[in-house]
Each structure stands twice: as C-alpha cells, then as structure tokens.
Nucleic acid binder design. Structure first.
Lengths: 126, 126
DNA sequence: GTAACTGCAAAATATTTGCATCCTT
DNA sequence: AAGGATGCAAATATTTTGCAGTTAC
C-alpha cells in the first residue's frame, strides 16, 4: 500500500473541486490550474483521488470524463449508483435525485448503475 | 443533403452488426473486418450510419464507444432513452428493459436518458 | 460524368509513462 | 534519509482530416 502525502498541489485541486458544486472535466480543471501546476500532475492527482475514493470519475453520454467529489461516499466506499444531469447548453454536470426500478433479466448481477440525463438546466431554460 | 450510396463495405459492416445482437465496439468491428477494409473506412461508415439513424452510439460507463443497431428506431427518429447492460466479464453490451421515474429539479428539461448498468450477465454468472 | 466512397498517409488530440529533481514526513 | 510527488519530455494510443484514385448511380 502506497502512503499518500499532503501537498499544495493536491490541496489546490481539492479547493477548486470544492468551490464547484458540479462535476468538472479535466479540461476545466486544467484551465483553472494550469499556472499553478502541470497538466500531468493534475492528471495524476485526479486519478489518485479516484483511487482514494475522494473523487468519482463520471463519464458523460458524450464520452467526456468528469470528476466529482464524493459528497455522500465515505472513503473507499463508493455508492454504486451515479445519477447525473448534463446540461447540453452550459455543460455542467450535477448530481441527480432519481428513483429507479430495474427489471434485469434472470440471473443477471448488477454492480453499478450509471444514469446520465441530458437536457437543459433551469438557468439555461430561462 | 448528401446522398448516401450503397457499397460492399457498408453492407459488410451492417452484416456484422446484424449478426451480433449486442452493441459492438469499434475495436471488435475492426478485428472482424480488418482484412476487408481500412480502419478509417470502418470509422467513417460507423459515424455515417449514426448520422443516418441506423446506429446508436453508446458510451459505456468506462468511456468506451460502442455501436448498436437501432432495432426499435425508425430512420432519423431515435428513441431518447437508451438503457444498456454491460457485463464486466465478457464486455458485451445489451439493451435493457427498465422503467424509470425521474424527479428532475424544477424547470429542467430532459432531452436524453442514458442508463448504463454494469455487472455480470447470466452466462458469466454460471 | 458527377460526386460519394475508399485506402493510405499523416495531422491533430488525448492518454500514459519515464526519470531526474523536489518536497513531505 | 526515504520514498512519494512533481515537472518536463516523450512515448503510446486515439481520433480526425486530406487527398488522390475508385466506384456507385
């Protein structure tokens, strides 16, 4: 087991993520942080955080990668259901509350549920 | 409007997709078709079919791109709900039947719903 | 004959790794 | 001091485009 360390870079990344309530793409994070650290460092920190269970990696229905703080998850104990809403106009991704009833075929074992709804958020409707 | 043509390559691609009931990744298609045509040709045919409404482009929760025939969609008239099951063992993706009740926040407009459940399919459980 | 299609090459992007140096513990 | 973290470079992989020759209509 690798022992992780507490560094300024990691704290910067965390701060940005905490300031944003929505999931952020690596692009967005790079735009904000590019003066303070290297792209590769951001890349490594993000994936490291995912390993630690601090972040979720979220795939949008467009195939883009987003990262979101695991507000509801304890470390190393992710929820297995991820419901998100992507606004096709402002491209923000938010967590969604939804109830879902699934009829899986017989003998199927469900591990993860990933629901991505896209459309327009309230701000972009107005 | 571009007038599409009927070519052997396109028919090959269609034949392979029809032979498979599940969604296929570009990789898989390339493996099967590489002797008959170029990768780029496959790429262009797939995206061309998507334009035509013959294929769905499906993103897995892992970020991989899959293509599936639109069995239920008429040309140019996609369903806006795509429910899929990805087996983490054999990596096949199947269409899923599920009912879903969403509580979107106020004023949100829903365009597309994309549900990806991953787990083990019946074959891989046994 | 016209314009879409194809193959090959390569440009443009994105992802990932190596390694020397720096910094946390 | 030891070993994880970072920056820079570069290797890999992926996606996309250009163009000349080919083929469907």
């Amino acid at each position: 087991m690798i022992k992780k360390r507490n560094t300024p870079s990691k704290n910067e990344v965390l701060a940005v993520l905490k300031a944003n309530k929505t999931a952020m793409s690596q692009d967005e994070l790079e735009k904000i942080l590019k003066d303070k650290m290297d792209r590769v460092t951001i890349y490594r920190i993000l994936y490291s955080f995912c390993d630690d269970g601090i972040l979720h990696k979220v795939m949008s229905d467009e195939g883009k990668t987003y990262f979101a703080l695991c507000h509801d998850c304890e470390q190393g104990h992710h929820h297995d259901s991820h419901f998100h809403f992507r606004c096709t106009n402002c491209n923000t991704i938010e967590c969604l509350n939804a109830t879902l009833s699934l009829n899986l075929p017989k003998n199927y074992i469900q591990k993860e549920v990933n629901l991505m709804v896209s459309g327009l958020c309230a701000k972009c409707v107005a």
